[in-house]
Design a protein around this nucleic acid. Sequence first.
RNA 1: CGGGGCGUAGCUCAGCCUGGUAGAGCGCUAGCUUUGGGAGCUAGAAGCCGGAGGUUCGAAUCCUCUCGCCCCGACCA
Length: 434
Amino acid sequence: MRLSRYFLPTLKETPAEAQIVSHRLMLRAGLIRQHAAGIYTWLPLGFAVMKRIEQIVREEQNRAGAQEVLMPTIQSADLWRESGRYEAYGKEMLRIKDRHERDLLYGPTNEEVITDVFRSCIRSYKDLPLNLYHIQWKFRDEVRPRFGVMRGREFLMKDAYSFDLDTAAARHSYNQMFVAYLRTFARLGLKAIPLRADTGPIGGDMSHEFIVLAETGESEVHCHRALLEKPIPEGVDYDTDLQPIVDDWTGLYAAADEMHDTAKESELGDALVTARGIEVGHIFHFGTKYSAPMGATVTGPDGEAVTVAMGSYGIGVSRLVGAIIEASHDDTGIIWPESVAPYHVGLLNLKTGDAATDAACASLYETLGPDRVLYDDREERAGAKFADMDLIGLPWQVIVGPKGVAKGVVELKNRATGAREEVSTESALARLAE
RNA sequence: CGGGGCGUAGCUCAGCCUGGUAGAGCGCUAGCUUUGGGAGCUAGAAGCCGGAGGUUCGAAUCCUCUCGCCCCGACCA
């Protein structure tokens, strides 16, 4: 993409409304623009990152055996009356009426809708297990939206719902998602740790929050150091028993600030790490909480009706854009992990209009490919181009100036390390092809 | 939902206390000079001062109401 034609409204100054670093950088780097409190428009660069995140989430969900669907944003209140949540949910739920005065709502979550789909389609235990997910916009009318996209009212979320014959089978579904989450966050370039979460009235040990570590994170976490170095499971066969992997990850001490245990922590000694983090995922087994009141049953092997056991598994996709920035930035801007970067390379023409420099850039742009390169061909001064490119945080920069071109070299800069080296055009191309 | 703060040009802000009809920097437009880390000069365009009501000869400025946004706290992917 040529920057001269790209809609990328960067800001030199920080808008007054943004307090935390990811919010500031998202506005300054032209990723989003605020529409109303907690509601944002995604501009091309921000949207590109979000789509890359979404795709990684999708691939790992599919790999774990979940199937993608798309449920509506606007839901009928009647379903929520069945589950009893229409009254219970409170003011966070945005309630609306259509022209016939029918009660509708903008979905804050989708348990009712998916349970309704399930009960109308599935009759036999032979159709289990089933795990359906979608990536869809949600709306929760937070009293106080803040931190930009990290705590918006409208947000993009992946939510999966599993259906099983009994709790033992549900545990396997749960474990599949647990492992998929470990892999997903690792692929996004994040260090994420699972924390045992409060299961409320249901009890049991089947609820975990996934916290991404970032120095500027809003919550404090305490955990065993070994958790941070644990290798991510590779080549997992999701049909085998995953309990050993889950046990391995949950056997080490890890707790959120409000649940931490100072006695256990003092036993850890040097192995204790206190860090800050951002919640980006939550997995939860809730048994028959919705299937029972809504009549989601299957015929079991013995011919009896069985109320299915369910779980739900969320990932905050739009929040992850902010979370990744919180975890990966410096004073000059964003540093995108390669896996989510909107472009792989930024090509800087330091002297647009200079025939030799233009020609060198055109050739590089053509060879590297417009889909992988953001080419700054604007008639701006070099300084402005450096500043913008650092701000938007593409992993690599190829800097082409008239002096270098005369010598047959360009400069290759790694955004994360800041390391720059003069290399021949050919070797720059070779390096970036990796 | 309790407490606090702020709405003046696209952005950051001054002016408000002590009423007299609007300013700066950046950005934008044009020209010239510049050209490897957000250039310089010149000339421009750009705001019914969030909205409504009131006080006053006169309101960005004082009063009342209202809308919006931000921050702290309680709650959440």
